[in-house]
Design a protein around this nucleic acid. Structure first.
Length: 117
DNA sequence: CGATTGACGTACG
DNA sequence: TCGTACGCCAATC
């Protein structure tokens, strides 16, 4: 279709798409998203995408995206450093010292969940 | 326009 | 096992 919204054509939009697919009470990592998109080495760009996510609508549940060890590295970007923690705990994700408790159990891997045969 | 930074992750020693 | 170096690419200084 001419003039179609090829938003998914942008790497950032792909990150946003996956971020929106993160179920409530679940978390994922930048690397997991990057790897799912086929750019595992560009994990930094996922973080940049999240930075830009503040200007993207609908709002991106960036609070469900943490680094590979479950550390709330981006908590300072939510307006308040405790905002991310509150949001996660509100969804049932325990956070201790800026780190997701039982992170592995809450980990949501798009490669496994969105895997297509 | 060139150098530095950044919400990360992997590789190497 | 731990510490350091590098890659990635866009935005900012």
């Amino acid at each position: 279709m001419a003039g179609s919204d090829n938003k998914l054509d942008s790497f950032f939009e792909q990150v946003y798409a996956v971020a929106r697919l993160i179920p409530k009470g679940r978390v994922t990592s930048y690397g997991a998203i990057a790897k799912y998109l086929g750019t595992a080495k560009s994990s930094r760009m996922v973080g940049w995408a999240m930075n830009n996510a503040h200007s993207v609508r609908p709002k991106i549940p960036a609070h469900r995206v943490v680094n590979r060890i479950g550390l709330l590295t981006g908590k300072h970007h939510f307006g308040s450093p405790d905002r991310m923690k509150e949001l996660l705990e509100k969804e049932g994700v325990k956070v201790k010292k800026d780190q997701v408790v039982n992170f592995k159990s809450h980990f949501w891997d798009p490669i496994l969940e969105l895997e297509l045969d």
